[in-house]
Design a protein around this nucleic acid. Sequence first.
DNA 1: CATTGTTTTGTAAGCCCTTACAATTTTAGA
DNA 2: TCTAAAATTGTAAGGGCTTACAAAACAATG
Lengths: 336, 336
Amino acid sequence: MTIYDVAEKSGVSIATVSRILNGGKNVSEKTRQKVLAVIEEEGYTPNIFARGLGLDSIQMVGLLCTDVADAYYAKAVSILENELHQKGFDVLLYCTGNRPEDKKKSLQMLLEKRVDAVILIGSAFREETDNSHLEQAAKQVPLFIINGLAEFPGVTCVACDEHGAVMQNVAELYKQGRRRILYLYDALTYSGFQKLDGYRDGLQSCGLPWDEALAVRVEKSLWDAKRAVFELLEEGIAFDAVMASEDLLAAGAQKALQQKEITLPIIGFNNSLIAECATPSLTSVDNMLDTLCPYTVGLLLRLLKGGEAPNKTVVSAKLVERETFQLSEDKKEETT
Amino acid sequence: MTIYDVAEKSGVSIATVSRILNGGKNVSEKTRQKVLAVIEEEGYTPNIFARGLGLDSIQMVGLLCTDVADAYYAKAVSILENELHQKGFDVLLYCTGNRPEDKKKSLQMLLEKRVDAVILIGSAFREETDNSHLEQAAKQVPLFIINGLAEFPGVTCVACDEHGAVMQNVAELYKQGRRRILYLYDALTYSGFQKLDGYRDGLQSCGLPWDEALAVRVEKSLWDAKRAVFELLEEGIAFDAVMASEDLLAAGAQKALQQKEITLPIIGFNNSLIAECATPSLTSVDNMLDTLCPYTVGLLLRLLKGGEAPNKTVVSAKLVERETFQLSEDKKEETT
DNA sequence: CATTGTTTTGTAAGCCCTTACAATTTTAGA
DNA sequence: TCTAAAATTGTAAGGGCTTACAAAACAATG
């Protein structure tokens, strides 16, 4: 069943059918009804490839992330997918893992699929790393980066201020008398660096010294985080608060502390289910995906329609207080 | 840059270029090299739509699930995406939520994209529900269902024996002297029914009575599960073990019990991070996605190559023991 | 060297749409 | 009723690829 069949059965030309199919102007109501009836009756569906050939687009956007099995990316993908489908776009999903060359290859493959836009979720590298593939890609297609940064023409970045969030957490812990704050982190993605820098800058602005031993890199795993913290405790390295670049790591730290029957303030990151489920529940920084993702899709649509969009947007993060740490009262009033 | 340009620059015809592009037989090594060089040099990429028009396929498979933000689906999508990309297929992702009409519509849209196959993750309804859309779809394209069931020609089901797993858990709890086993469950998807039936059948085969009050339906939320269990405790409804259709619910139950300072065996389902992170960590049933998903992709490839595949495969689930429940010793030996 | 069989290459016909432009019909105004 | 303008419809030219089939080049055989 092709457009020719429909045209024939309704006694019009293919051009008319095509116009109707494309929300066509310049078609009389009478013929529209007639053709629509035939289409309905025959169950005709336009061939997406032929249409793509003609229009050079089949309304698809590519989503590139590190790993959808991870709650953070899963949440982003989920929101983006919803928004995009609502706006009539299909979603091509690529999970690349953390190897730069895989990311590059995936981006390339996405472009070969002639998507209308690409959204990277937290997958840009730091400035000093080679981001030339992003620069190249952005020449072919609008490129969006959520929680990452790449300042090339054609690239639109939307991020939450992770650096600032961590700094504030340090400041708040300091205000509550904490002087030796442990920081657990895993991969040094762009976002990973942001947070680590936030930690460092936070210490500095409180006048606290940088102590190598208190910034600990671990695998992204509950057990490795637990092991690391446990070892610190065994070695007698003192600390009086814990922050982590990920709820999972915070949960690991919590397990180690519990085993030693120590209670300290703990602040996680990403405000995931894990933070809720932990006992006691973990205070955590919300990365604002609920805001960032729909906003990004909004920019995307605007850009595809030929409009303009700010090439960099940063919103501040939000601390979600649970049992492992609460803001002091004066701070709260300030926020209200 | 089209195939015509490449042909011209290498002094051959487009047919030859096309042959080379398609892993062509019947091309002399000399011309192959020549053409490949031009392609490389010019950075030519075939137009995917034109190719699709000719071949009626651009090597895409559609993935349909309820919600990627949920760890269970996220894991499945992650594994499937990986396998499929490895085999050269692109992945079109649809998250439908739980409304049947949305699932139908998404399936329809997927078919319009002329995917080569569709994989549903846990999204079939129970037999008595209207599954005619699946029947229709299966006529157009190979359809795979992971952890769901629909016995129509063209539909391939791959599942883990959730019913059996729950039954066994009941039996094991019974063996350890538990007589009033609470079962928490949420949505009655196909898989939800499987587990609920497993609970009922498990009780029966142990000679335990079915007690309406012990099969509690809750929202898929930590807090609702906690609330429900807390209320039971307040009302004085006695139970001596907890099972849940989802780790999240088990974690909620655990919180309620902890608040009342009660310790009972708890068995979750899905073997997610939440089970690991809970304190004490939750024993949980692994749904075997690690096996099911690659296996499904294997069948898919075989089918697309014109081969045959069993239209129903069931593997047994696996209990992952953690702190909230351990199998008795004799049982363990049995398993070894 | 002629003949037949194999490889390699080219020509041209699809595949199914969109859309510029031409042709026709309708409407409005005089 | 006639003419000009507007609305509607049709014709035909792409869009870039695959592939059946025809043609040409090459190899092997007697």
